[in-house]
Computed example of a mutant assay.
Amino acid sequence: MGALVKVSIIYYSATGHVAEIAREMAESATKAGADVRLRRVGELAPQAAVETRPERAFDAEMTADVRVAKADDVATADDLIWADAVLMGSPTRFGNVSAQLKHFLDTLGGAWQRGLLADKVYSGFTSTGTLHGGHESTLLALATTFHHFGGIVVAPGYTHPAKFTDGNPYGTSHHDAGGAQPVDDVTRAAARIQAERVVGVARSIGAARAAA
């Protein structure tokens, strides 16, 4: 199996679909031999605004164990510093990452300035309300941040036959039809392939560093 790889999966989810993808990735990374942290970033929207959206009920159900009371279930800079590889996910907001995830990224300046986010493997995933409403641009926006970190951006590419079914070489993406479309087998397969690839690349990099 090789050296143990530490993987942080950090996400924001509004309707539960990004959370489902994150869980699929966490399970796959664990099976691939990684030590995994699954972390959700904090909510910024007022509770009253959240409660007006009925699709939030599914998200609350999917993320109940992450919401519950342990402070270490909420993402911090340490989760990136600890990791060899980071999988990061967000729903799309006007073709970009959500305000909640962006806020979290904006808190990482100190760790970035000290060089603590560099030389790690990074990869992104997303879920969108419309079929062509930001799948690629959201993932590319995440990659832009990873480049600023000095990260090693690992996309799934077309490295597996199943990738020709989901058709997205940039990262896992799901069309949730405004919260109404469940995560399907195509998306789950894409999530597994991406997580396994990230673990494999991170393990190879770690082995090369150890040999050097």
Rank of each mutant, 00 (worst) to 15 (best):
residue 120 K to Y: 06
residue 12 Y to E: 11
residue 103 H to C: 09
residue 162 A to R: 07
residue 207 A to Y: 00
residue 12 Y to N: 10
residue 206 G to E: 10
residue 186 V to P: 01
residue 165 T to C: 00
residue 99 A to H: 12
residue 95 G to C: 04
residue 38 L to M: 07
residue 139 L to Q: 08
residue 140 L to K: 14
residue 169 P to Q: 03
residue 158 Y to D: 04
residue 173 S to I: 02
residue 69 A to C: 00
residue 147 H to C: 11
residue 212 A to H: 08
residue 170 Y to V: 05
residue 134 G to I: 08
residue 172 T to E: 05
residue 32 A to W: 09
residue 165 T to M: 09
residue 206 G to H: 07
residue 10 I to K: 02
residue 61 E to M: 12
residue 44 L to V: 03
residue 205 I to H: 01
residue 194 Q to K: 09
residue 33 G to V: 12
residue 140 L to A: 04
residue 72 D to W: 04
residue 155 A to Q: 15
residue 157 G to Q: 10
residue 37 R to A: 14
residue 57 A to N: 06
residue 161 P to R: 11
residue 212 A to G: 14
residue 181 Q to A: 14
residue 28 S to W: 00
residue 163 K to C: 14
residue 142 L to R: 01
residue 7 V to S: 08
residue 146 F to D: 06
residue 107 T to I: 04
residue 48 A to R: 12
residue 174 H to A: 02
residue 29 A to Y: 05
residue 113 Q to I: 00
residue 163 K to I: 00
residue 23 R to G: 11
residue 161 P to F: 09
residue 187 T to P: 05
residue 133 G to D: 13
residue 133 G to P: 12
residue 206 G to F: 04
residue 134 G to W: 05
residue 16 G to R: 05
residue 126 T to A: 13
residue 79 D to K: 01
residue 157 G to P: 10
residue 6 K to W: 01
residue 8 S to G: 10
residue 82 W to N: 01
residue 46 P to L: 11
